[in-house]
Design a protein around this nucleic acid. Structure first.
Length: 115
DNA sequence: CTCGTGACTCCCC
DNA sequence: AGGGGAGCCACGA
Protein backbone atom coordinates (compact mmCIF):
# COMPACT_ATOMS: atom_id res chain seq x y z
CA UNK A 1 0.00 0.00 0.00
CA UNK A 2 1.32 3.39 -0.95
CA UNK A 3 1.01 6.51 1.08
CA UNK A 4 1.21 10.06 -0.20
CA UNK A 5 4.86 10.44 0.60
CA UNK A 6 5.67 7.57 -1.72
CA UNK A 7 3.93 9.21 -4.61
CA UNK A 8 5.97 12.34 -4.07
CA UNK A 9 9.24 10.63 -4.73
CA UNK A 10 7.78 8.46 -7.43
CA UNK A 11 8.41 10.76 -10.34
CA UNK A 12 12.14 11.24 -10.01
CA UNK A 13 12.72 7.68 -8.89
CA UNK A 14 10.76 6.36 -11.83
CA UNK A 15 12.66 8.58 -14.19
CA UNK A 16 15.97 7.23 -12.97
CA UNK A 17 14.56 3.74 -13.03
CA UNK A 18 13.51 4.01 -16.66
CA UNK A 19 16.70 5.71 -17.78
CA UNK A 20 18.85 3.01 -16.21
CA UNK A 21 16.98 0.42 -18.25
CA UNK A 22 17.77 2.01 -21.58
CA UNK A 23 19.79 -0.65 -23.42
CA UNK A 24 23.33 0.01 -24.59
CA UNK A 25 23.31 1.78 -27.92
CA UNK A 26 19.73 2.96 -27.53
CA UNK A 27 18.21 6.32 -26.72
CA UNK A 28 14.85 7.69 -25.69
CA UNK A 29 13.20 11.07 -25.25
CA UNK A 30 12.06 13.18 -22.34
CA UNK A 31 8.55 13.07 -23.68
CA UNK A 32 8.35 9.30 -23.89
CA UNK A 33 9.61 8.93 -20.36
CA UNK A 34 7.14 11.49 -19.09
CA UNK A 35 4.37 9.79 -21.01
CA UNK A 36 5.33 6.45 -19.54
CA UNK A 37 5.11 7.96 -16.09
CA UNK A 38 1.60 9.18 -16.80
CA UNK A 39 2.34 12.88 -17.31
CA UNK A 40 3.10 13.52 -20.99
CA UNK A 41 3.27 17.23 -20.32
CA UNK A 42 5.88 16.88 -17.62
CA UNK A 43 8.78 16.33 -19.96
CA UNK A 44 10.51 19.29 -18.35
CA UNK A 45 10.59 17.40 -15.10
CA UNK A 46 12.46 14.60 -16.79
CA UNK A 47 15.08 17.11 -17.84
CA UNK A 48 15.17 18.45 -14.31
CA UNK A 49 15.61 14.93 -13.01
CA UNK A 50 18.51 14.42 -15.39
CA UNK A 51 20.13 17.56 -14.08
CA UNK A 52 19.76 16.28 -10.55
CA UNK A 53 20.78 12.76 -11.59
CA UNK A 54 24.34 13.92 -11.15
CA UNK A 55 23.82 13.61 -7.40
CA UNK A 56 22.47 10.08 -7.58
CA UNK A 57 24.72 7.36 -6.26
CA UNK A 58 23.66 4.90 -8.92
CA UNK A 59 24.78 5.53 -12.45
CA UNK A 60 22.21 7.20 -14.67
CA UNK A 61 23.05 7.17 -18.40
CA UNK A 62 21.68 10.63 -19.02
CA UNK A 63 23.40 10.79 -22.38
CA UNK A 64 20.81 8.33 -23.69
CA UNK A 65 18.02 10.83 -23.14
CA UNK A 66 17.49 13.48 -25.80
CA UNK A 67 14.65 15.69 -26.96
CA UNK A 68 11.98 14.55 -29.38
CA UNK A 69 14.06 15.56 -32.40
CA UNK A 70 17.02 13.45 -31.39
CA UNK A 71 18.97 16.56 -30.55
CA UNK A 72 21.50 16.58 -27.73
CA UNK A 73 19.78 19.37 -25.89
CA UNK A 74 21.47 18.42 -22.65
CA UNK A 75 25.05 18.22 -23.83
CA UNK A 76 25.79 21.61 -22.38
CA UNK A 77 25.07 20.28 -18.92
CA UNK A 78 27.80 17.68 -19.03
CA UNK A 79 31.24 18.45 -17.73
CA UNK A 80 32.76 18.92 -21.16
CA UNK A 81 31.47 20.16 -24.47
CA UNK A 82 31.77 16.78 -26.19
CA UNK A 83 31.22 14.39 -23.30
CA UNK A 84 27.65 13.43 -24.15
CA UNK A 85 28.50 13.14 -27.81
CA UNK A 86 31.54 10.98 -27.12
CA UNK A 87 29.61 8.67 -24.83
CA UNK A 88 26.93 8.11 -27.45
CA UNK A 89 29.43 7.61 -30.25
CA UNK A 90 31.27 5.06 -28.15
CA UNK A 91 28.01 3.13 -28.07
CA UNK A 92 27.86 3.08 -31.85
CA UNK A 93 25.56 6.05 -32.31
CA UNK A 94 26.51 8.57 -34.96
CA UNK A 95 26.22 12.26 -34.15
CA UNK A 96 26.24 15.24 -36.45
CA UNK A 97 25.54 18.84 -35.49
CA UNK A 98 24.37 17.67 -32.06
CA UNK A 99 21.76 15.50 -33.73
CA UNK A 100 21.54 11.72 -33.67
CA UNK A 101 21.74 10.24 -37.15
CA UNK A 102 19.02 7.66 -37.78
CA UNK A 103 17.50 8.68 -34.49
CA UNK A 104 14.45 6.48 -35.00
CA UNK A 105 16.60 3.40 -35.46
CA UNK A 106 18.16 3.93 -32.05
CA UNK A 107 14.95 5.00 -30.35
CA UNK A 108 13.91 2.85 -27.41
CA UNK A 109 10.31 3.18 -26.31
CA UNK A 110 9.93 2.47 -22.58
CA UNK A 111 6.33 1.42 -23.14
CA UNK A 112 7.39 -1.34 -25.48
CA UNK A 113 9.80 -2.80 -22.96
CA UNK A 114 8.03 -2.16 -19.68
CA UNK A 115 4.40 -2.73 -20.58
C1' DC B 1 5.09 31.44 1.33
C1' DT B 2 5.49 33.46 -3.48
C1' DC B 3 7.97 33.83 -7.66
C1' DG B 4 10.88 32.55 -11.38
C1' DT B 5 13.08 29.13 -13.99
C1' DG B 6 14.16 24.88 -16.58
C1' DA B 7 18.30 18.96 -20.21
C1' DC B 8 10.32 19.63 -22.98
C1' DT B 9 6.27 19.37 -25.93
C1' DC B 10 2.02 20.46 -27.99
C1' DC B 11 -1.26 23.75 -29.97
C1' DC B 12 -2.52 27.95 -32.29
C1' DC B 13 -1.75 32.01 -35.16
C1' DA C 1 7.62 28.55 -41.58
C1' DG C 2 8.41 30.37 -37.27
C1' DG C 3 7.12 32.57 -33.07
C1' DG C 4 4.34 32.74 -28.84
C1' DG C 5 1.65 30.70 -24.99
C1' DA C 6 0.26 27.02 -21.88
C1' DG C 7 0.81 22.86 -19.13
C1' DC C 8 3.62 20.14 -16.33
C1' DC C 9 6.14 19.90 -11.31
C1' DA C 10 10.35 20.35 -8.37
C1' DC C 11 13.52 23.39 -6.38
C1' DG C 12 16.22 27.48 -5.04
C1' DA C 13 16.19 32.48 -3.87
Amino acid sequence: MRNEKDSQIDFFEKVYDVVRQIPYGKVTTYGLIAKHLGSPQAARMVGWAMNKSHYQENYVPAQRVVNRNGMLSGKHHFNGEHVMEDLLMSEGIQIKNDCIIDFEKHLWDPEAFLK
